[in-house]
């Protein structure tokens, strides 16, 4: 049956426009490049920004991995994989090491990324200053003139109220000593993986029509204070499936009496790790 779509769904002119935005995003790390976001055949919030990036980057030789909160098998990941299988006939993999492009909703894989790999992040709210200053016209100026004091005030208010910085995901970072950037709603546990990463990180926000990027080997610093340094989440136990103690854990309620276990959020890492300990 002949393909009923252009390769990877988007028309060629839309891809050109997005490709130009990607190159500018890489040239200005952390800066949100506006682009003419297209209507995609799924609602905003389901990764329309990420899908447009993947569609503009992907070729017939690529191996695509899609994860949703670390899992290869949840509904968003499954439908995006089905979308690219149907519109581009693309090879799908669950292996982090084998993937050339990894589209992700809210996690960075535990397996270290390699040079040349492309991460595509789905971003709901690209503007880290939005909750401080809702006017786009103002946040553009704040970024332009590096007026970032209020971001630290927000973190300080957390310390004043809770005794610690309470932001656990979408934790703001400063990229290449210049732009403050939303790393997308990844847990702050994943923030250090962006710092000096060998891989290429692209971020797409479909509703807000913004593309931004972290090139490889770029400084990405989580905001903090000298006396309240950036800290990672910690767990008392290990993963109930694979026993990993170096992985981001999800809490799972197993019955209606409140019994709970913790398991790896990254399903591929967990499966490989379990295979290692119980061959």
């Amino acid at each position: 049956m002949p393909l009923a779509y252009n390769f990877a769904y988007l028309d060629e002119q839309s891809k050109k426009m997005i490709r130009r935005a990607i190159l500018k995003a890489l040239a200005i790390p952390g800066f949100q490049v506006p682009f003419g976001g297209r209507e995609m055949p799924l609602p905003y919030g389901w990764g329309t920004g990420g899908i447009q990036l993947t569609a503009s980057v992907i070729g017939p030789d690529d191996r695509l991995k899609v994860i949703d909160q670390g899992s290869d098998d949840t509904v968003n990941a499954i439908s995006i994989k089905a979308f690219f299988k149907k519109t581009a006939g693309i090879a799908i993999t669950e292996e982090t090491r084998a993937a050339t492009i990894i589209q992700t909703r809210h996690r960075i894989p535990e397996t270290p990324l390699q040079k040349g790999q492309i991460m595509v992040f789905q971003v709901p709210i690209p503007e880290p200053l939005q909750f401080i200053e809702p006017k786009k016209s103002q946040t553009v100026k704040m970024h332009g003139f590096e007026e970032y004091g209020s971001m630290h005030v927000k973190l300080y208010e957390d310390i004043a109220k809770f005794g610690r910085i309470a932001t656990a995901f979408d934790y703001p970072v400063q990229v290449h000593q210049r732009y403050i950037m939303s790393p997308s709603p990844i847990p702050k546990y994943d923030n250090p993986k962006l710092h000096q990463s060998p891989a290429i990180h692209l971020f797409g926000a479909g509703r807000e029509k913004r593309i931004y990027a972290v090139p490889p080997f770029t400084d990405v610093v989580s905001l903090d204070f000298e006396d309240y340094p950036f800290e990672l989440e910690q767990w008392d136990g290990a993963c109930a499936v694979c026993g990993s103690q170096n992985s981001f854990l999800d809490e799972i309620i197993t019955d209606d009496k409140g019994t709970r276990v913790f398991i790896c959020s990254d399903t591929e890492y967990c499966r490989n790790n379990a295979g290692k300990s119980n061959p």
């Binding site: 252009n6 190159l23 070729g59 090139p215």
Partner: peptide
């Protein structure tokens, strides 16, 4: 091929821009 040649060239540009 408008579709596949432009994709191939762009991927080389993307990598070149990412690794100056």
């Amino acid at each position: 091929s408008e579709v596949f040649d432009s994709q191939t060239v762009f991927r080389h540009m993307l990598t070149a821009m990412a690794y100056p």
